[in-house]
Design a protein around this nucleic acid. Structure first.
Lengths: 144, 144
DNA sequence: TAATTATATTGTAATCATTACAAAGTAACA
DNA sequence: TGTTACTTTGTAATGATTACAATATAATTA
């Protein structure tokens, strides 16, 4: 049940968000690049295709998409805001050695806490850090 | 088993980190103010006591304490890095209405994921968002 | 299709958090 | 007490994000 680009443009329409060229391109980029890119990565790559693209537009577009619940913001580490087209609840693992971010499935319902009985929970975020299998294999276990 | 200021200065000693006046004050502040303060809050409050205190020192000190595993960094929302003297694994809940951050207990062992079988996990972070009981009571459910 | 209106994009400048750096100060130790 | 190494401080630099006004574009109406 992977979300497609068409699903997303229909969602935009239904939310009365104009389907501008830039917005569609940013959406398309996020669908095709599920590595949780930063603004800079998105801007640098799309700039090759759209030479007039401004970084402000990338910020504006991402904020619009976040407001519309089409994109989720990830703050797994300071100083690098990332964006995820997958808005379903799942965990993120960041490798301290190579910096890659992995998605992982986790049973959210098992994560109840009595301390939150009277809280209204809107969103759950799970971030793990450590060393990924590839870096373990290559012996890159020391890196920061 | 609440950690005390004495425990912490002993830990500093054992890690060969000098017990400067500023460092002890920042540590003391974190022990006494478990609201997960920002650099700005720490600086503003301590500046009243220590007029010569520099914000750079607060940053330096916090980074030193983090490297020594005495303090944990919290990135629950963009643009506001927070610091926690409680380094045991626990969850954080941020109220979208009043901005308060609550700690909650959660069974970390129940949070296993097959996807991470071959990963080395060093740290687990759990952040929830929503509305806290006080704001629900007062009807502040709409705020951002 | 052409004209109108509202919204989006762009580039520049402003803001804010964090870090770099060098001079001055302080703690630890001989 | 003197020496050495480390810490603090203030200023300047960096980098991410936002504000803003001019221009361009999409949607709508005639």
């Amino acid at each position: 049940m992977k979300i497609t680009f068409e699903d997303l443009s229909n969602k935009l329409k239904s939310k009365n968000i104009r389907l501008s060229h830039q917005r569609l391109k940013v959406l398309e980029y996020l669908v095709n690049n599920r590595c949780h890119p930063t603004v800079d990565q998105i801007y640098t790559d799309l700039h090759k295709e759209i030479p007039t693209l401004s970084k402000t537009t990338v910020y504006n577009t991402l904020n619009t998409l976040i407001d519309a619940d089409l994109v989720k913001l990830i703050t797994i580490d300071e100083n690098e805001t990332r964006y995820d087209i997958d808005t379903t609840t799942h965990g993120h693992f960041k490798c301290e050695s190579c910096g890659a971010i992995y998605d992982f499935e986790i049973n959210i319902n098992s994560m109840e806490s009595e301390d939150l009985s009277y809280f209204k929970i809107n969103d759950k975020n799970i971030y793990f850090n450590g060393i990924c299998p590839r870096c373990i294999k290559e012996g890159n276990n020391m890196a920061n």
